[in-house]
Design a protein around this nucleic acid. Structure first.
Length: 261
DNA sequence: TAGGCCATCTGGTCCT
DNA sequence: AGGACCAGATGGCCTA
């Protein structure tokens, strides 16, 4: 039940592990799949020979040529496998990065979110943040009414961090929420703004095997500072009403409503 | 032991 | 042609 999967099974093993496992598997596969590989090699080598016009069916020249192409094919396979491995490794790194910013407890005593759980939780989290943002905009609009200009882009002292996009891009080239990913305040700001957020639990069914620890913003969590910008540029459209089929998502959405109350 | 999750290999397809 | 992307297959590890 130990969630420290990095110790038991790292999603991104080091290169030595990769190298070792690769060769172990290759040794196993070269024995079991050698027929397929040799068939492929023979097919390709024959094709190569016919292309190059060197028709020496049974001579030594043919054998040498075939051997060379088999080695080339082998090397090509290794090269392709390495690329694919690197691609998947990068994908896992991105997945780890996503896990880091997810409002879910991190640590050695917490099982790492699975990939599917990470994606589902991330989607739910985005929807929650969107609804929270809309709600805050609505509240600010109610409170300040037509005087919101005092809190407009860059007018607020704290807004410098989160609204760097505005100050640096008068033409709104970069949305501040996107810019906040590069420069923003700590999660405590969000916790203050949305007090209930830090106590949200993840009820997703895919997380059933976890002890469901209280959600906490990851160390890498970043958000904008200060008040939401009510300008038309920052007025994000309402979240699309995507049907949520997952029970976990539905449940979390329900909790979101409670948080917003 | 079954099922879930994952890494890796592999062949196909599409793009540059 | 080479690389990126994708999906299926396979086998290992872990947990209930």
């Amino acid at each position: 039940m130990n969630s420290d999967s990095s110790s038991s099974r790292a999603s991104s093993p080091d290169m030595d592990g990769i190298y070792l496992r690769e060769h172990q598997l290759q040794d196993a596969r070269l024995n079991s799949v050698s027929s397929t590989q040799s068939e492929l090699a023979q097919k390709m080598s024959t094709e190569h020979v016919s292309r190059s016009g060197e028709k020496t069916p049974a001579g030594t020249k043919y054998k040498l040529k075939k051997q060379v192409t088999e080695q080339e094919i082998q090397q090509l396979r290794l090269k392709i496998n390495g690329r694919e491995r690197k691609r998947m490794h990068d994908l896992n790194l991105a997945m780890d990065g996503l896990r880091e910013v997810m409002p879910y407890a991190h640590g050695p005593s917490v099982r790492k979110l699975s990939k599917i759980a990470t994606l589902l939780l991330a989607r739910n989290y985005i929807l929650m943040l969107t609804s929270s943002l809309d709600e805050m905009k609505r509240l600010v609009g109610e409170i300040y009414g037509g005087h919101h200009s005092a809190f407009h882009c860059g007018s607020v002292g704290h807004a410098g961090a989160g609204h760097a996009g505005h100050t640096a891009n008068p033409g709104h080239q970069v949305h501040p929420l996107l810019g906040s990913a590069l420069s923003s305040t700590t999660s405590s700001t969000l916790s203050t703004t949305l007090p209930g957020l830090t106590s949200i639990r993840a009820p997703h069914s895919l997380l059933k095997s976890t002890p469901t620890p209280p959600l906490q913003l990851g160390t890498g969590f970043q958000h904008w500072a200060g008040l939401p910008c009510p300008c038309t540029i920052c007025q994000v459209p309402p979240p699309p009403h995507i049907p949520i089929t997952s029970t976990g998502l539905t449940r979390l959405s329900t909790e979101n409503k409670d948080v917003m109350k």
